[in-house]
Design a protein around this nucleic acid. Structure first.
Lengths: 224, 224
DNA sequence: CTGGCCTGTGAGGAGACCGTCACAATGAAC
DNA sequence: GTTCATTGTGACGGTCTCCTCACAGGCCAG
C-alpha cells in the first residue's frame, strides 16, 4: 500500500505523514499540483490524499486531471467546510472529503474504507460460489450440489445452510442464527431451528456436516 | 438504482425520501433493524442508508449483519459526531459516515460517489446480442430467435426476458424484477409477473428456460 | 443413579406460494 | 367508434413450506 499525500501546509503534512507511518502505510509527500501529477504518474499510488488549497494550481483541477487517466481513489482534504465544496469535489470524482482539522484515526479508517471498496477482490466469505470438499454452494443461483449431484433445498433450508457455511468451522449461537436467517429477533419455539437443521442433515446424508454444540448452537464443517 | 433507507425519525426520513425522489433515485423506507434486514434480503438494493439509532436493535449490528452476506454499499447516518463512532462504523464495513443534520445535495453526491466506486466492474451482460445455446436475444433490435427461428414477444414479455437473461444463472427476486421491469416499487400479491413468465415459457416451448424458485423468484438459464 | 434440561425426529395442519384461467382495463391502429 | 393486441387482476386449486407439538433420547450436575 502506498499513499500519495499532496499538501503544502507543513504542520498538517507532518502530522498526516506521521499518522500514516503509525498505521504502517507507505507514503510520499509533495507540496504542489505539478509535483502531484508528476509523482502520481511515476509512483502509481494506491490512493491520493489531496489538499484543495495548493500554491500553484487549483486542487479540483489536480483531481480532474488524475481522474481523466485513472480511477485511483482520491480523498480530498480541505479547510473549507461548505456543502457546495463537498458536493463539487465528490462530483468531479473524489471518493471522500475530509474537513480540517480531522483526527488521524478517522483519516486512516476512511483510507481503508475507500481502498477496501476500490480493490475488487471479494473476501472469501462473501463469494457467490463456495466449495467444501464434495459440497458446493452457490448463493447466486441458490443451488447446492454434493458430489456433482444437485440437491434441492427449500428457501429456509438454503438460507440456513448458506448462513452456516459462510462461517464454516465457527460455532454460531442459536439466537444469532435466528436473527440472521429468520431476519427477526423473536425467540419463539427454538425447535424451528432444530427442525430445519434436521432437514438439512437428512438431505446431505452425512449428519456430520452440521454439528450441534450443546447449549450454544451449531457448527458447519466437513465431516470427519 | 434503488436505495434502502433505514431511519426511524420521521422528519429526517421524509426529507431524505424527498431528496432521493428529487434526484430520481427509487427508495424504500423502513423504520427498524428487523425490517431493514428483511427488506434488504427481499429487495437487493443498490445501497443502504442506515441510521444508527434504531428502536429495536443496534445499527452497527444491522451493518455487520448485512456485511456478513453482501458487499452492498452502506452509508451511515448518525446524530453522533465523535471520531470514535465514525472510526468504528467505517471499520465494521460502512462506506461512509454522515453526521446529522446533513444537506441533501451532499447526501446525493456521497451516494453517487460510493455507488460509482462499488460498481466499476461492468459484466458482459450489458452486451446487446447474447446467445444461450440455441436461444439468441438481441436487445437492440428487440428480437429473439430460437434455433434460427424468430419468435415474437410482446414489449413486456421481451423486457422481462431481457432482464432475466442478463443475469443468466442467478436467481432474481420477484420484488427486484418488478422494480426493474415494471419500474414500480409496489410488490404484493400480484399475478402479473407469473402471467408473463407463463407466456414466455409457452413461446419458448421448453419451460426449463425460466425456473421458478419457490419463495424467492425466477432463474433464467439453459434447460438441463 | 436420577432428575432436569437440551436436542433429535416425525406428524400434522395452517397458511403461503405458484400456475392457470377468464375477464377487465388500457391503448393503439384503422 | 370499432377492433384487436396487450397488459393487469382476482379467483381457484393443488402443492409445498414451515411452525408447532409431543415424545424420545442424550448429556450433565449433583
Amino acid at each position: 500500500m502506498h499513499v500519495l499525500v499532496v499538501e503544502d501546509d507543513e504542520s498538517v503534512a507532518s502530522s498526516v505523514m506521521e499518522g500514516l507511518a503509525t498505521a504502517n502505510l507507505g507514503a510520499t509527500l509533495v507540496g504542489s499540483g505539478t509535483e502531484a501529477l508528476r509523482s502520481f504518474a511515476e509512483l502509481s499510488p494506491d490512493i491520493v490524499l489531496l489538499d484543495l488549497g495548493l500554491p500553484d494550481m487549483d486542487g479540483t483541477d489536480v483531481c480532474r486531471s488524475i481522474r481523466s487517466t485513472s480511477s485511483t481513489p482520491i480523498i480530498i482534504l480541505s479547510a473549507r467546510d461548505d456543502e457546495i465544496d463537498r458536493v463539487v469535489a465528490l462530483e468531479i470524482g473524489a471518493d471522500d472529503y475530509l474537513v480540517k482539522p480531522f483526527g488521524m484515526r478517522e483519516l486512516i479508517a476512511r483510507i481503508r474504507a475507500v481502498v477496501r471498496r476500490s480493490s475488487t477482490v471479494e473476501p472469501e466469505s462473501t463469494k457467490s460460489l463456495r466449495n467444501y470438499g464434495p459440497l458446493s454452494i452457490d448463493s447466486r443461483s441458490r443451488r447446492v450440489t454434493l458430489a456433482e449431484v444437485e440437491i434441492y433445498f427449500t428457501p429456509k433450508e438454503f438460507d440456513l445452510l448458506d448462513y452456516l457455511s459462510r462461517d464454516a468451522g465457527a460455532v454460531l449461537r442459536r439466537a444469532e442464527i435466528l436473527r440472521n436467517v429468520w431476519e427477526t429477533n423473536w425467540y419463539g419455539t427454538t425447535k424451528t431451528l432444530d427442525a430445519h437443521v434436521a432437514a438439512i442433515r437428512r438431505k446431505l446424508g452425512d449428519p456430520g456436516w452440521i454439528v450441534s454444540v450443546r447449549g450454544i448452537g451449531f457448527r458447519f464443517g466437513l465431516p470427519e
